[in-house]
Design a protein around this nucleic acid. Structure first.
Lengths: 261, 261
DNA sequence: CGTTCATATATCCTATATGATTTACCGGCG
DNA sequence: CGCCGGTAAATCATATAGGATATATGAACG
């Protein structure tokens, strides 16, 4: 086993790997997938960077075949892309406009999903939501690490609501869309989480009360507020990076003969 | 904007990015993927059936590695699923309820997409739509083969509208959802296409007139009608198959020592 | 006669080797 | 001094081989 890489990788699995499975004998593909995913969301692999298969195989002490398969999975999720005889690269960071579009789609789906969930959620789903509410209210706020906790809770909330809608396709789609946002956790060191927590509570209490109208409204308000908060940070960042890199930094591209004078 | 300067490489890549048949140097993975996809939608591989890697490798005269990658892609699209040390299987046929849920989600997205498209479509998109309208009106109707033509046109219409919305995520999601429906083409030998063609024309003319409200309404009407038509056929089929297979036939499972009495 | 354990085999999963393609370096020519 | 082709190396893509796992058949036992 590898052991070069002692990443704790506290990230919840992004893809829907069916509820729960022993996970005893973890496939090397799954292992490579999780390692790659954590490298992507922590920006250990930069957004436009080239992902060499051979290098990764050495680093993870896994052969090339499972690596390639894991990259294929990430490509299907649009978290990486492949140029046919050149290799894989990490997906580019979403532009401000893309983030806007992403929320536009989420606004079409998730408020309705919340309304469905208010009507059709079973008891197990409701109790999970209640438990999440407890966790989030007791979570600390202010410091930097707290934001990661909040983001994790946010992801779980949206996932639970989508799943509780009872519509398999809604659940899959919402989860797929959310994957793109995980990277941004590491750009937002601090970001008013207090309001967001209140929005979360509004959503959950509406669901527990089985009030579809309130749930839909709360979800819409939360998404719009979230989009607004994100937009502020992205505008700021856009201004900075625009001034910082007048020429194209060209990204890490190393290929062909190694530099050897 | 990464833009690694001006990559010279690229006719092949440009054509693959735009929806055109490259046919130049087709990767074996792509080839295997397309072959598998056509086998799945034509039910040459039955819905729950086991997909043996070795057998396919022999059949397509390709080694196992690209086959495996293609299957991984299909798994990510939910057109196949994998049981960890057992193998891949074709996805089950959507139940009537799942089809209902699928249309429920489409109804959330596509009418809005049509409204966006009416506002933001560029001239190229509009001309493509106009061309499609011409094709579909001249298509024949009635016989069995005509339905396949219609289904193809339907898929292209929804794809064009989603792309014309200008929202990358809407386009990707709509296309992903549509993939599940391709299988049903081969269950519907005949299905009143006349009305559907009229619905298509209503959508296209609304878009060409750049009328968002009409486009949204036309798309919603089309989806609801389509869902209704589909539901009728599925109810019929449900009744038949329920009577036909009282026990679970368990599907084609052949594994372990070959039968040798 | 039913149940359980052992063995055999097909299949998947992973590793390694070979071939194909791209990219980078470098010297020559305009 | 800069553009352009040739050559070499690194990387991707594919093929093939070797372990690992699950399933089925059959025998042993209660």
């Amino acid at each position: 086993m590898a052991a070069n890489n002692q990443e704790p990788l506290s990230f919840a699995r992004l893809v829907t790997l069916d509820e729960r499975r022993p996970a005893y004998p973890q496939s090397l593909v799954e292992l490579a997938y999780e390692q790659l995913l954590s490298m992507l969301v922590t920006m250990k692999i930069a957004p436009g960077a080239h992902i060499g298969i051979e290098a990764l195989a050495r680093q993870l002490d896994i052969s090339q075949t499972p690596i390639r398969e894991a990259l294929t999975l990430l490509e299907a999720q649009k978290l990486a892309y492949k140029i046919p005889n050149v290799g894989f690269r990490a997906a580019e960071l979403l532009t401000r406009r893309e983030v806007h579009d992403l929320f536009e789609l989420r606004l079409l789906i998730e408020p309705a999903a919340a309304a469905f969930a208010a009507q059709k959620a079973d008891d197990a789903a409701l109790s999970r939501l209640a438990g999440l509410a407890g966790e989030m209210s007791s979570a600390q706020t202010g410091n930097e690490l707290a934001y990661a906790q909040f983001a994790e809770g946010d992801a779980r909330l949206h996932h639970l609501v989508a799943a509780a809608s009872g519509n398999r396709f809604i659940a899959e789609t919402v989860e797929g869309l959310h994957a793109h946002l995980h990277i941004f956790r590491f750009l937002f060191k601090t970001n008013a989480t207090d309001k967001a927590v209140q929005e979360h509570e509004a959503i959950i209490s509406a669901l527990l009360a089985r009030d579809p109208v309130a749930a839909e409204r709360a979800m819409r308000a939360h998404l719009e507020a979230s989009r607004g908060r994100m937009n502020v940070v992205l505008e700021e960042r856009e201004r900075l990076t625009a001034a910082q890199t007048p020429p194209t930094p060209d990204g890490p591209t190393r290929r062909g003969r190694s530099r050897r004078r």
